[in-house]
């Protein structure tokens, strides 16, 4: 079965940037999925069971924290690796995010090379 990575962000250009960043994964047969809000993300996660989710924190309709909590604490999809994305300077949310069950935390602007390396590592583990 194909590995899947879900990118969740309400800003289209950020989705595009992450997609562009993770493009190389597609060559390895990884499928990149997109969602533009929390609700949509939750539906896709339930249906597609992605291996990895890049989840923006600040979003309309159910923010990243809530999505994370639902996935990890209610649906118990612990095998879905969730990386929370938040703007630099809002690192105070870090602990809250980790409490909600997030596996990792990254800040925006992100370092594309670092993001790709992390994604590859998680996908291949």
């Amino acid at each position: 079965m194909n590995k899947k990575v879900l990118i969740v962000d309400d800003e289209p250009h950020i989705r595009m940037l992450i997609e562009q960043t993770l493009e190389d994964l597609e060559d390895e047969g990884v499928e990149l999925l997109m969602a533009e809000n929390g609700e949509q993300a939750l539906q896709i996660i339930e249906k597609e069971r992605p291996n990895l989710v890049f989840l923006d924190v600040m979003m309309p309709k159910m923010n990243g924290m809530e999505v994370c909590q639902k996935v990890k604490k209610e649906l118990h999809l612990t095998e879905v690796y969730i990386i929370l994305l938040t703007a630099k300077g809002q690192e105070v949310d870090r602990q809250k995010g980790l409490d909600m069950g997030a596996d990792k935390y990254m800040t925006k602007p992100f370092d594309p090379d670092e993001m790709l390396a992390i994604a590859e590592e998680i996908i291949n583990s």
């Binding site: 960043t21 630099k88 370092d111 594309p112």
Partner: peptide, 20 residues
């Protein structure tokens, strides 16, 4: 364009890190 934007983004990130 995507590639160009990504490389700009890479710079932004670098400058962000640098100023930090």
């Amino acid at each position: 364009i995507g590639k160009e934007v990504l490389s700009l983004y890479r710079e932004i990130n670098m400058i962000y890190d640098l100023s930090e």
